[in-house]
């Protein structure tokens, strides 16, 4: 049985694709067979973050329409043999994906022996976001410690609890919170919502906290999922999140301000 994980948020620009790419890589690095699917029809981006944009021949909609086989459309990752990417279509037809079509692709992937299917949701609460979450077993809700992102996340949590296959069967999608762009220093000065604040407002535990980091932009520039920049705090935080997703317990890192020496204290730098 393949485990289907949706990475969603409601609000755009909070790090869904960055997170999808890193979680997919993290799972693959641990030896699991992983497929990561871009559900953002019309605005393909996962391929860029994964660094395979020049190898896209067929996309998700081609498979759904029977214009290509799943095998032809899956792009094998250059770094991990057991990681495959299914790119979004760039068609402007918003109705290109159907519930039945998506279900068929997910079932075929499961039959093909995939352990994890990571669904990268588009922003918003339109059809693409609905389809990305509909078949999910687990959901990673990406949230920035900022008012509009938190509010939209709560909206998404409401949809996960009502508009998914699991909800319709009287079950629940297992929900996780992933905080991104977290700045411990700004939390300490009272300028940013803390992990505890966000958990309290949304009534959900965090599975990972990714610190605000310049490495995320640098990694995306290169087409390298940030989790692979092993020296980076963001990479290590993503790796912790993947471990927790798989059931490990790990303490949160990079969530407090590092203690400073005497001189930096004196001059406040």
């Amino acid at each position: 049985m393949a485990e289907i994980i949706v990475v969603t948020s409601g609000k755009g620009g909070v790090g869904k694709t960055t997170t999808s790419a890193s979680i997919a890589c993290g799972l693959a690095r641990r030896g699991h067979k992983v497929a990561v699917i871009d559900f953002d029809v019309g605005l393909r981006n996962l391929d860029l973050i994964m660094g395979c944009e020049r190898r896209v021949v067929y996309d998700f909609v081609n498979v759904v329409n029977g214009e290509a086989t799943l095998r032809q459309s899956l792009i094998k990752d250059k770094r991990f043999d057991n990681l495959h990417i299914l790119a979004a279509s760039q068609t402007r037809d918003k109705d290109a994906l159907t519930t039945e079509g998506v279900q068929k692709v997910l079932e075929d992937l499961a039959a093909d022996g995939f352990d994890y299917i990571v669904c990268d949701s588009p922003a918003g609460i339109e059809k693409g976001a609905y389809l990305a979450m509909y078949f999910a077993d687990q959901a990673v809700v990406v949230v920035n410690p900022e008012v509009s992102s938190v509010r939209d996340s709560d909206r998404i949590l409401g949809l996960l609890a009502s508009k998914t296959r699991r909800a319709e069967q009287g079950e629940r999608v297992k929900e996780h919170l992933l905080l991104t762009r977290y700045a411990p220093k700004r939390v300490e000065t009272g300028e940013m919502l803390s992990i505890g604040d966000v958990e309290e407002i949304l009534g959900l535990k965090t599975i990972g906290v990714i610190p605000e980091s310049g490495d995320v932009l640098n990694a995306s520039n290169k087409g390298e999922p940030v989790i692979l920049e092993t020296e980076s705090d963001a990479a290590q935080a993503y790796d912790d999140a993947v471990a927790r997703l798989l059931g490990d317990t790990r303490p949160m890192r990079f969530t407090t301000v590092e203690k400073k020496g005497f001189f930096s204290k004196l001059f406040g730098v």
Binding site: D154, R155, G158, G190, L193, S194
Partner: peptide, 18 residues
């Protein structure tokens, strides 16, 4: 400027309402 607590209060009310 301790704005985080303002954000938290606003969100708590809004989320409960929604």
């Amino acid at each position: 400027k301790q704005t985080a607590s303002v954000a938290k209060d606003r969100l708590r009310i809004l989320v409960a309402h929604e």
